[in-house]
């Protein structure tokens, strides 16, 4: 009897997940394949439409740019934080965590203030005489990118600090005694050892950007749809449930492919010492 207890304990959670996650998902996605006969027509026609395809490509493009920018900005910052004393590290981690725990509506709204026609950036540029007419920064792909970097940079930094903290500082010193300058030692030693952290962080940033709703909704406007806002528009404004469901599956599959892809890269790079001595 006691062998069954774990399953009894797991049952309520499993039932809820099956009924309110799995079944709704299947019930939404199944019709996109089966309409009397089994076919991929919905997907083929979705991608044939240049407007739809453009949104798909934009989503991927924005996600790639955001991920790359987060790595460029996050890696040195994480390295800096990991190298500070425990007291400072705690403070800097709290400072990094704060934006992460702040509502994404607020964080996107912050960039409306900065990027609008009358926003801080335009005023600043005008006052130093770089521009005479305000630039259109808001409701562009650029504003989605900035907003998404802003949204996901903290999570990359926090993931990386966790990995970099665990790198033995003597390894860096050893590289230096062997003739590597600080920058070289960083590139040749710390960076390769941080790859697992960069991969995990990149998955979070990439899939986060890929599926984020608030930021493209507030900063992208109607002309710069991403998959998530397009799904919402199809479902709730246009009543086009078939397309909404198609987008839903595309988002799930893209997310899974991205995760799998990053993990493959990680395994390829991180070949060192599979078996212990």
């Amino acid at each position: 009897m006691s062998k069954k207890i774990p399953y009894l304990i797991l049952a309520p959670g499993l039932i809820l997940l099956v009924f309110f996650l799995l079944i709704p998902l299947v019930s939404v996605i199944w019709p996109t394949f089966y309409n009397g006969t089994l076919s991929f027509d919905s997907y083929i026609s979705f991608f044939k439409d240049t407007y739809n395809f453009g949104i798909f490509i934009r989503t991927i493009r924005v996600s790639i740019i955001v991920t790359v920018m987060c790595i460029i900005l996050g890696v040195p910052t994480a390295y800096f934080i990991a190298g500070t004393s425990a007291k400072w590290r705690g403070l800097l981690m709290a400072l990094t965590l704060f934006p992460m725990l702040t509502n994404s509506v607020i964080r996107s709204f912050a960039w409306i203030n900065l990027l609008g026609q009358n926003g801080v950036v335009n005023k600043l540029l005008a006052s130093i005489g770089i521009i005479s007419k305000p630039l259109t920064l808001l409701y562009t792909e650029f504003s989605i990118i900035i907003g998404s970097i802003y949204l996901f940079l903290p999570i990359l930094i926090i993931t990386l600090v966790g990995v970099m903290e665990n790198i033995n500082p003597e390894i860096m010193e050893a590289a230096e005694t062997l003739g590597a300058s600080r920058i070289k030692a960083f590139i040749k030693v710390v960076l390769p050892l941080s790859i697992p952290g960069i991969i995990v962080g990149s998955i979070l940033v990439f899939t986060g950007t890929l599926t984020a709703y608030t930021t493209p909704q507030l900063l992208g406007g109607n002309r710069n749809m991403m998959l998530s806002t397009f799904l919402y528009q199809n479902a709730m404004t246009l009543g086009n449930w078939e397309d909404a469901s198609v987008i839903a599956l595309i988002m799930i599959v893209t997310t899974l492919i991205v995760m799998k892809g990053f993990n493959l890269i990680a395994n390829r790079i991180d070949k060192r010492g599979e078996q212990d001595a």
């Binding site: 959670g13 997940l17 309110f20 996650l21 079944i23 709704p24 998902l25 019930s27 939404v28 899939t207 890929l210 599926t211 709703y213 998530s228 799904l231 919402y232 479902a235 449930w241 909404a244 469901s245 839903a248 988002m251 799930i252 997310t255 899974l256 995760m259």
Partner: peptide
């Protein structure tokens, strides 16, 4: 049990709403 984090939030919301 962890799968709700992999499925995009909009998809969770959409499928719950529909179903």
């Amino acid at each position: 049990f962890l799968s709700p984090t992999i499925i995009p939030g909009v998809v969770v919301g959409y499928s719950l709403f529909q179903f």
